[in-house]
Computed example of a mutant assay.
Amino acid sequence: MLFGPLYLDRTQSARRLSAHAPGDCVQIDLGGTTDPQFGGGPITVKGELLSVSDGHFIGDGPMIHGLSGHFGTTVVLHVQGVDILIVSIARQILDLQQFKAFGINPQDKKVVALKSMQHFRAAFEPIAGQIIVCDSGALCTPRYDRLPYRNVPRPIFPLDVNLTL
């Protein structure tokens, strides 16, 4: 859903979906809001709203055991066999409870996709058959040469990979 040149950000998406009741069929644009040049623009999805919550959870894994946290307004949307956790406050995924608290048990899934850079491994490696790290092409890409640095003296590694000393 476009509003001028801007797309709904995660906060708007979660709040808009939270106005619906579980069981409702909804359509919304997700993702691609930070900078569509990196990782692409949003995708339009249609699915069943499974749950709406305030986003609170208490960790029970090695990284945040016993600590409470919250995602703000949080919804779970079921789209073509995939459960999508949509949150208002972005956080690194560090604990299985960040899914379980909202009715998604990662241990029951064949594939779990996380938007998390590092510390997810402590909780998720023990339940994973394999971990595949992907470059989404977004702002957290490890391919620094793709980012539009302007005030960096050049040449410099890793922006310029073919440096000769």
Rank of each mutant, 00 (worst) to 15 (best):
P5L: 10
L8R: 12
D9K: 02
D9C: 03
R10F: 02
T11F: 06
S13N: 08
S13F: 01
A14H: 12
L17K: 08
H20G: 05
H20P: 05
H20D: 02
A21K: 15
A21R: 14
A21T: 15
C25Y: 01
Q27W: 04
D29C: 06
L30D: 02
G31I: 05
G32E: 09
D35T: 06
D35P: 10
Q37F: 11
Q37S: 14
F38Q: 09
F38M: 11
I43A: 06
T44Q: 09
G47F: 05
E48P: 00
L49S: 01
L50K: 15
S51Q: 14
S51E: 13
F57W: 12
G61T: 00
G61H: 01
L67M: 15
L67F: 12
G69Y: 06
G69K: 12
F71L: 08
F71T: 08
T74M: 00
T74L: 00
V75P: 09
V76D: 12
V76G: 11
L77V: 08
Q80I: 01
Q80W: 02
V82S: 01
D83V: 03
L85Q: 14
V87W: 08
S88C: 04
S88G: 12
I89E: 14
R91S: 09
R91I: 10
Q92K: 07
Q92P: 07
Q97M: 13
K100H: 06
F102P: 10
I104S: 03
I104M: 15
Q107G: 12
K110V: 07
V112P: 05
A113Q: 06
K115H: 11
S116I: 00
S116H: 00
M117P: 02
Q118Y: 11
R121C: 04
A122R: 05
A123R: 01
A123L: 01
I127P: 05
A128I: 07
A128D: 04
A128K: 08
G129M: 13
V133E: 14
C134T: 13
D135C: 10
G137K: 10
A138D: 10
A138G: 03
C140G: 03
C140E: 15
T141Y: 01
P142H: 07
R146Q: 09
P148F: 12
Y149R: 03
V152K: 08
T164S: 00
